[in-house]
Design a protein around this nucleic acid. Structure first.
Lengths: 201, 201
DNA sequence: GCGACTTTGTGATCGGATGCACAAGCGGCT
DNA sequence: AGCCGCTTGTGCATCCGATCACAAAGTCGC
């Protein structure tokens, strides 16, 4: 389920307070969801809580850590180093959870060779070699919209099977490849939409 | 519905090709959804297509533009100018759709007074005045997680009723305020989760 | 050791979104 | 003018996730 990361974060908060067990109600309020949902999700991955007490914080954290693959190291590749790509390259929030940025790639010859943080921008043509050598599992597309589909195709061809797309474009990938989209302008538009309709009423 | 922005983008693409009408099938494939869904969504907002022909591109675009509030100017405020906040401040993708960044705010005295792009960072204390004077409708939270809830509270108090939260934290707001969350680390974790489960099978 | 209380796990229900399939309507061709 | 093919709009069945509610199970106090 896509809610596990939420629970994980909630658990980290709980663990900081050195509490031994946590109830589904507490977790639910920390994660901002319904308590029954928490229980069902946790039961789904076979984790056992103790009735009358709750869930053992340490044990549950280990379970979720394992389930999410946080024990592994996930090499991440970023394609496209405009404003957004550069920000992602410098973003510290990733490292903490096992995501390590191992390569930056751009099609623009002007950008190739530039240093960003501690990394050097490489050329799009080297994708296959980079992916293979550094065992890239996840790629982030931060290119302009018109380049997104082609980049995705090349990524898939190079062997990447998980893509996070920030470009405002619909990108289709073959079966067996996961893609998720984060679209900033759309998010703002949805907010604007609701706000406008609130004002109208 | 939250799919209108998708349709809008698809329509922009169609309009560039100087085509007069578009069928629900075409729109569906461009937006990556089912054709019946497109028709239902469009009928929901009362837009009329012509049977046997399709939808008039210009007319439909005007309708959606209006419905989404793209005719309006939406002043946007960004709180928190770490890596992510700075990138958002420089991001060009917003302006095109009526979103105009009118203020940058940070709690850190070191950052107050800095120039980013063509704007100067202001202090968190001035929030109420900034929001009121510049008629801020939408605020973006790009602070660290631990500050997110307090910032949200102050935003709501200052009169903001739409918030886009990039901080990896659950933020609760009173009734009548919309909040949407974009969590980069979570997105990566979801991808990692699926990938791990694919490998296990 | 027993009863009351707490909390989990899950069967049942509900609602909303999704997709199918088809009738109604429109344009174009003869 | 009439027919044919195409596309919309929508009723209906389906499905999936969310929520409720309750029994099972365990703890704590006496």
């Amino acid at each position: 389920m896509a809610r596990l990361p939420l629970y994980y974060r909630a658990l980290v908060e709980v663990a900081e307070q050195a509490v031994g067990t946590v109830s589904s109600e507490q977790l639910a309020s920390l994660a901002g969801v319904n308590a029954a949902k928490v229980r069902k999700d946790l039961s789904y991955l076979g984790s056992y809580g103790t009735r009358g007490v709750g869930y053992d914080v340490d044990y549950l954290m280990r379970e979720i850590t394992q389930e999410l693959g946080l024990t592994q190291d996930w090499p991440v590749l970023i394609v496209g180093l405009g404003n957004l790509g550069r920000a992602l390259a410098n973003y510290r929030g990733f490292g903490a959870r096992g995501f390590r940025i191992v390569a930056l790639v751009d099609a623009d010859p002007e950008k190739v060779g530039q240093c960003i943080g501690e990394m050097t921008v490489e050329t799009l043509g080297d994708l296959p070699a980079i992916v293979a050598e550094r065992r890239v599992a996840i790629a982030v597309i931060a290119t302009p919209a018109h380049a997104a589909q082609e980049v995705a195709d090349r990524l898939v061809e190079a062997g990447v099977r998980s893509i996070l797309n920030f470009a405002p474009a619909v990108v289709s990938v073959p079966e067996g490849v996961s893609i998720r989209k984060v679209d900033l302008a759309t998010e703002l538009q949805i907010l604007a939409f609701y706000q406008q309709h609130r004002e109208h009423v």
